[in-house]
C-alpha cells in the first residue's frame, strides 16, 4: 500500500506536485493518469525517495521507502527507461543491482527469461531499442520479487505484443495481492489495464475513483440528435448546464440532458427527430473533460480553434 499525504514538490517558482494525497491499495492495478508535465514522474520519484518532497510525506507499507531494511525486495520500480549505464550489458546491470540484496544469479536469469531478454542479455544496453530498455527496466523492478511495483509509463515504446504482455503481467501481479501503481498518459491503455484510477493534472489530483465510476460519473449524458428543425430544437433545449453543438446542418450533439428529456421536448413541440442516440462517454472523453483546465501544454491547434469543448465533438 502506498500512502501520500499532502505531497508537494516545488522547483524554483514552479509547483510540480501540489499537496497531493492518495492511497494506492494492494490487490488491484491503480492507474496514475495525467497529461505530460502533470507531475506523475515527480510523484513516483518522491515515493522512491529519489526526490525529496518540499512538504508532505509518502510511505510504502507504512514506512518511508528509504527506511525499509531491504528496499528492492519491498518495492520494485521502473522510473525511467534510462536508469541504466548503457555501456554495461543487461545481465551485468541486473547482476550489480541483485548483488546489493544478495539476490541469487538464478533470480537474475529468471527475470531475464520472464521479460524476454534472453537473447540480448549479454549485449550492451547501448544498442537496445526503447522497448528492450523498458523490458530491462521491468526485469529490474521484478528482481527482488517485491510486494509493491511502481511502473512509470511501462508501455512506452513497446510493440503491441509487449503492450499485451505488460497488461497481463500487472494484472497477474495485482491478483497475487501485490500493490501495482502504473502511470500513463494513454487513457486507452488505462481503460484496458487499471482497476482504479488516480487522475492528476497540473500537480493536483483531479479524480481518484474506480475506473467504471470515472467513465460513467464524470462524463455528462450526451446524445446525438438528427432533426430537420435544428435551430428550433436548439432554442427549446437551451437551459443551464445544457450545451448544444451543431455538428452538421441537421445534426446536433446535446450534452447535459438525458435522451428521454430531449425526446419529450421534441414531441411536445411537434419537432420530428429521425435519430436520437445516447452517447456513452469513453474514458478518453472523461479524461479530456477532467483535465481540460489542467493541461500543461496545449497544442497550438487546440488553443487556436476556439471550440466550445476540448473534445472537439469527435
Amino acid at each position: 500500500m502506498i500512502e501520500a499525504t499532502g505531497l508537494t514538490k516545488v522547483y524554483g517558482d514552479k509547483t510540480a506536485v501540489d499537496g497531493v494525497s492518495f492511497t494506492v491499495q494492494a490487490g488491484r492495478v491503480t492507474g496514475f493518469l495525467g497529461p505530460n508535465g502533470a507531475g506523475k514522474s515527480t510523484t513516483m520519484r518522491m515515493i522512491m525517495g529519489l526526490d525529496r518532497p518540499t512538504s508532505g510525506s509518502v510511505t510504502v507499507n507504512g514506512v518511508p521507502f528509504a527506511q525499509h531494511a531491504a528496499p528492492l525486495r519491498e518495492v520494485g520500480s521502473l522510473l525511467d527507461a534510462k536508469a541504466v549505464h548503457t555501456g554495461r550489458t543487461a545481465y551485468n546491470h541486473l547482476l550489480a543491482m541483485a548483488a546489493t540484496h544478495s539476490i541469487p544469479r538464478k533470480r537474475v536469469q529468471e527475470v531475464i527469461e520472464m521479460t524476454g531478454l534472453g537473447e540480448v542479455a549479454k549485449k550492451k544496453v547501448k544498442g537496445f531499442s526503447l522497448g528492450m530498455g523498458q523490458r530491462l527496466g521491468i526485469a529490474a523492478a521484478l528482481l527482488g520479487d517485491p510486494q509493491t511495483i511502481i511502473l512509470d509509463e511501462p508501455v512506452n515504446g513497446l510493440d503491441p505484443e509487449g503492450v499485451v504482455w505488460v497488461r497481463n503481467l500487472v494484472k497477474y501481479l495485482a491478483s497475487e495481492g501485490r500493490t501495482v501503481f502504473l502511470s500513463s498518459h494513454l487513457m486507452s491503455e488505462m481503460a484496458m489495464t487499471a482497476d482504479h484510477l488516480i487522475v492528476i493534472g497540473r500537480g493536483r489530483i483531479i479524480a481518484d475513483a474506480p475506473i467504471s465510476e470515472i467513465i460513467s460519473g464524470k462524463g455528462q449524458s450526451r446524445a446525438r440528435v438528427r432533426t430537420d428543425q435544428p435551430q428550433q430544437l436548439m432554442r427549446l433545449l437551451a437551459a443551464d448546464g445544457v450545451s448544444v453543438e451543431v455538428q452538421d446542418h441537421e445534426l446536433l450533439e446535446v450534452t447535459g440532458l438525458p435522451a428521454r428529456e430531449i425526446a419529450r421536448t421534441a414531441l411536445d413541440h411537434q419537432i420530428m427527430v429521425y435519430e436520437l442516440t445516447p452517447l456513452q462517454a469513453s474514458l478518453e472523453e472523461a479524461y479530456m473533460e477532467l483535465t481540460k483546465d489542467e493541461v500543461e501544454y496545449h497544442s497550438l491547434i487546440t488553443t487556436g480553434a476556439a471550440a466550445p469543448t476540448q473534445t472537439g465533438g469527435q
Partner: peptide, 12 residues
C-alpha cells in the same frame, strides 16, 4: 546515464 536512479533505489 540515469544509472543513479537504479543505484539509489537499491541503496536509498
Amino acid at each position: 546515464t540515469g544509472m543513479a536512479r537504479s543505484t539509489f533505489a537499491a541503496v536509498p
